[in-house]
Design a protein around this nucleic acid. Structure first.
Length: 587
RNA sequence: GCGCCCAUAGCACAACUGGAUAGUGCAUCGCCCUUCUAAGGCGAGGGUUUCAGGUUCGAAUCCUGAUGGGCGUACCA
């Protein structure tokens, strides 16, 4: 309908040019909007106001000219000029119900479009270090990323979802060492646990499995473990970083590479499988868990560095290898290989992004926490230097959720073991409510997350409002069958013209908006638009429900109404699927 | 210091990406269950869109500056 009007206006612009009202070289963007106020008709355009300058006449006069040129179309009942020069289109009520048939024919495909044109997208998100369980901060990225992926899929992209597993580097060594030290404690050794080690309770579970497999064969005397180790923070000459680094070296030496590997692997396997299970319970699933170590082992990182060297953007300074990212607008140059020969995290990230493109993806989407925003220019710089198009990479930043409990701001740290896990949140409020809560806000908006509120008011979460609308429809349709009035959509579609209440027309109008909302939301990566749309649609349904009886004696009216609400049911289901929320049949 | 992001009703957030009288939920106050689920509906109150300028037919939205908040500014990952 909207396109139809836009089409008409495009023709009008051509005619205006021919008549010399506006210059030949003007090509205005045809803008057709849904009106907010029903007295403004169904659609409006600001075309006259946009062209007022080129035409050299007041907007209302120009609008008058445009209206005269607008071709007669049966569905357009009336065209009006209003306000400063808006042109309002009033659509014939009966035409508004055409969408119902479309919905029922296309079913779960209703709302899909092809702006993606089958291009392949890799959406990488969560990618939290596997050093502990996911906390509620990760939840936002998970909910947002999964919804964006769904959205893109509906918009006609070929989507793959990936979790980058940082299973290499110092943090993992600290984790392995922390596990081993806790294991030693369980074996009866006594010492002060390093301040910089991982202290979460989940560590003990890993130790239990180590004990089950190895009994005490991994035990070493404390005197040996701590001999010659730099003291911890708070002690004479102490340094917590050196302390933990020394302990890592000890762990490797005392255990030997094979046993150290075993501890390392036990830790990461346990945590990763916990994360996988957690995300699956959150209705977030990945196609690929991409290991950083695999990049190292396959030599991809070296290849990437060589590629950069070939571009001439690598130089040596102070024994380290630097990438000249300032040539691409970064604030300063960045180290890729440290003076001790160890490659930085940045180096593997360059390789990782290069690898993504090599796997054939057209578009790369990274979803990062906003604390990584400073990282974007250097990754793009590296992509440029390697001769790839940095435009292919789109980084979506998600603001941190600031957690409150009873008005108190909560500090969260995986290291200290003090955080609220995603699993706790799911247990308390449920996956659906949590998914909806996260995705309701646009991603760049700071989010205050009051846990007490989220838990105590779980029944007031708008998600139930939407699910309730869906469940209501299901129950009504079931009741109809029980009363011997099974739904005959064929008959219903034929009688839609009999529906003329305000609520019915409103619902039909809302249904027609859905594909457009999806397309727009996908274009700007904003799943929250779907959430708001669904609230509106649910409101339309509840309103309708309270004002009208669906299961009535009159066959024609009943069939028409049941057909209309089954279309609503379908769209609610489609929209909820994008947000990753279930559509229950009863509540 | 410099850079990025944010600021809308008591609270949490929207506003079709520059459109008409700035909306929704919670909270507050009325009304509606012998009728398909009241986790619902109908209505009321609540705003100088942080402040000061600018751009234009038109600004919550764009530009400049100020204020307040978050984050970043490693040869960490």
């Amino acid at each position: 309908m909207k396109q139809q009007i836009a089409q008409i206006l495009t023709e009008v612009v051509q005619q205006l040019k021919q008549q010399g009202v506006i210059p030949e070289d003007t090509s205005p963007r045809i803008n057709v909007e849904n009106t907010r106020d029903k007295s403004h008709g169904d659609f409006a355009t600001n075309l006259a106001m946009m062209l007022t300058k080129q035409a050299g006449m007041p907007p209302r006069d120009l609008a008058q000219k445009i209206v005269e040129l607008v071709a007669d179309v049966p569905v357009v009942q009336k065209v009006e000029i209003a306000g400063p020069g808006f042109i309002n289109f009033f659509v014939d009520d009966s035409a508004k119900f055409d969408v119902v048939q479309t919905v029922l024919e296309q079913k779960e495909n209703f709302g899909k479009c092809n702006v993606g044109q089958g291009r392949s997208v890799l959406v990488e998100f969560v990618s939290a270090n596997p050093t502990g369980p996911l906390h509620v901060g990760h939840g936002r990225g998970a909910a947002y990323g999964a919804s964006v992926a769904n959205l893109l899929e509906v918009a006609g992209f070929k989507v793959a979802k990936e979790y980058y597993v940082n299973d290499a580097g110092r943090q993992m060594d600290i984790l392995a060492t922390s596990v081993w030290l806790r294991y030693l404690e369980q074996c009866g050794e006594t010492f002060t646990f390093p301040s910089n080690g991982y202290k979460g309770d989940y560590i003990y579970a890993i130790c239990d499995s180590l004990q089950a497999h190895y009994a005490t064969t991994l035990q070493k005397p404390v005197s040996e473990v701590f001999a010659g180790v730099t003291p911890d923070e708070g002690q004479e000459g102490g340094d917590k970083e050196k302390h933990i680094d020394d302990l890592i070296v000890k762990a490797k030496n005392l255990l030997g590479s094979q046993h150290y590997e075993a501890v390392f692997k036990a830790a990461i396997d346990a945590i990763l499988s916990d994360i996988k299970e957690d995300l699956a319970g959150f209705n977030v699933n990945f196609d690929e868990w991409f290991s950083e170590r695999s990049l190292m082992d396959s030599g991809v990182i070296d290849a990437a560095i060589e590629k950069l060297q070939a571009s001439g953007k690598i130089y040596e300074k102070g024994g380290a290898l630097w990438f000249k990212s300032t040539d691409y607008g970064d604030e300063k140059d960045r180290v890729v290989v440290r003076d001790n020969g160890i490659k930085t995290y940045f180096a593997s990230d360059i390789a990782y992004h290069f690898n993504k493109l090599e796997r054939g993806f057209d578009i790369l989407i990274d979803i990062w926490g906003s604390d990584h925003h400073g990282y974007v220019p250097r990754v793009k710089a590296a992509m440029e230097a390697m001769g790839t198009d940095s435009e292919a990479l789109k980084v979506l930043l998600v603001q941190f959720a600031v957690l409150y409990r009873g008005g108190e701001k909560l500090a969260m740290s995986t290291r200290s073991g003090q955080f609220v896990t995603l699993r706790e949140l799911r247990d308390e409020v449920g996956s659906d409510a949590a998914r909806f809560f996260y995705v309701q806000r646009k991603s760049e908006q700071h989010m205050d997350f009051d846990l007490d509120l989220a838990k105590s008011k779980s029944n007031e979460n708008p998600v139930y409002y939407i699910q309730y609308a869906h469940a209501r429809i299901c129950r009504v349709l079931a009741q109809a069958v029980e009363k011997g009035y099974s739904l005959d959509t064929e008959a219903g579609l034929g009688n839609l013209a009999k529906l003329e209440s305000e609520q019915e027309i409103h619902i039909a109008t809302e249904l027609a908006k859905y594909p457009e909302i999806v397309a727009r939301a996908a274009a700007v990566y904003e799943p929250h638009q779907i959430a708001y749309y669904l609230k509106d649609l649910a409101h339309g349904l509840h309103s309708y429900y309270n004002a009208n009886q669906f299961i009535v004696e009159d066959d024609e009216i009943r069939q028409a109404r049941l057909t209309l609400i089954s279309a609503v049911q379908q769209v609610l289901k489609n929209g909820l699927a994008i947000i990753g929320v279930s559509a229950p049949e009863k509540m």
